[in-house]
Amino acid sequence: MLIPEVLVCPISLDLMSDPVTLLPTGQTYDRPSIRRWLAAGHRTCPVTMRPLPHHTSGGSDQSALLAPNRTLKHLIDRWLLLADLALPTLRDNLLDVAAAAAPESAPTVAAVETLRIIRSLSPPGFCALLLRLVTLRRSDDVLAELALGCLLASPSARELADALHEEKKLPSSFAFLLRQGSPKVKTALCRLIHTVGAVAVDAVVALGRSEPVMVALAALVRDDTDGAASEAALRAMWSLSSSDQASREAAVAAGAVDALLSYISSGGSRRRSPSCAPWALALETLELVLVSVDAGRQAMYARPGATAVLVKMVFMVPSRQDRVGGGGSGSEHAMASLLVACRESAEARVDAINAGLLTRLLLLLQSQCSPRAKANAMALLKLLRAIWARH
């Protein structure tokens, strides 16, 4: 079953769930898509490019331009009913797609439409087939992107986790796609790892213990320049490193410490403030591997300027979304990593003093910091007292 063109949003190119008509031009769009368009400041119709009356990004202002298209909504509901009755046919089509999948073959229109319908319906029972398609399509084509989109839209996280747990080719296939896939495929794979790891750690243990997977994630965290793939890879690395000790050791062996420090030291170059959630997550992941893996601490000591990078993250002013006490969650994780490093290395203690850690700790203690931040700050001050006296 092909999705009728009249039911597809011109912006998202997906089946519309809440069709609305843009009153000045008569064009119909899915409500979430056209609202994002207007909220972004666009003052034209996406299809006709005709200018729209003056509006702001506010909700009430948008509502004056939009009207529900109830006739089209009724047609969509009827089509979905027919599509739901056709699920056995969709399953057979997907089996045919997986059987014919090959890196050198171009995706057929029928294959693309089958996946688009599955993504729109999000039916249960398709995760294993979709995952098989991802592992077979060892290329960065549209089918891999669509199959991953279907998996991420799965209504059952448990079904998705079971499918990952049963698929034996995952580590090698995921490592390949994380290296060679398109940016969209890489980002979707990382989101999939993070999503499943949040509900079923056992389903991602094999991925976490795979050094090739960790090498690919570390490369994305360190080298990706557009920010989307690196942030997704960071979340995936955190999920895998949280699963067990062997995964943390694999992460360290794959160069995770250097990648995380590079990410943290990049500051605002990736279009975010260092106090936003991704940087706090990078610091939390770094703390995780430094606390539990000896080789992780050695990797940190071997990197010039690593201590100074962490000192800069102490007493960072948190964003409103990330506020945790006065110092923010990023400060807590930075101090915890510094505490581990300074306990073991006299050189790290000197570097911390020279980087201005004492001033930051004193400022932090005067703020309304969290109990954990205060405890870490006091422990660091006691640890550095002897060197402080000499300075």
Rank of each mutant, 00 (worst) to 15 (best):
Q366F: 01
P183K: 04
L361D: 03
F315I: 07
A203M: 10
M378S: 08
A206P: 10
D244S: 14
S337W: 10
V20G: 00
G325Y: 06
T56V: 08
E145H: 02
V311F: 07
L146A: 03
R297L: 04
P155W: 12
R222K: 13
L290S: 04
I118W: 01
L177I: 07
A375T: 14
K374E: 15
A299L: 04
T21G: 05
A101W: 06
S210M: 09
G330R: 04
S173E: 02
P4F: 06
V257H: 10
Q62V: 04
A144L: 08
L189Y: 07
P124S: 11
S367M: 03
V309T: 09
H333E: 15
S242K: 13
P46L: 08
T56L: 08
C276W: 14
G330V: 08
T225Q: 12
S60R: 15
I11N: 00
R209Q: 13
L286T: 01
D224V: 03
A308Y: 00
S139R: 00
A375H: 11
A203R: 03
L170D: 00
S345H: 09
L80C: 11
L339M: 13
L178D: 06
S57I: 05
G325W: 04
L260Y: 13
M237C: 11
A147K: 00
G197C: 01
R271H: 11
T71V: 12
R248M: 15
S239D: 04
R271N: 10
L383P: 00
A232W: 00
P318V: 00
T307Q: 03
M214K: 08
S33C: 07
P371D: 06
E166K: 15
G125H: 14
S273P: 07
G267K: 12
A282P: 05
P51R: 08
S275C: 14
S370A: 15
L260W: 12
R349E: 10
A218T: 12
D223R: 06
A375S: 08
E145I: 03
S242E: 14
G305W: 04
L152G: 07
A254Y: 09
S57Y: 04
R320K: 14
H165V: 02
K184H: 07
L95S: 14
T285M: 10
A99W: 01
R390H: 13
P155V: 14
A236N: 05
D77K: 09
R116P: 03
L339T: 12
D140Y: 01
R137Y: 01
R272L: 15
S139P: 01
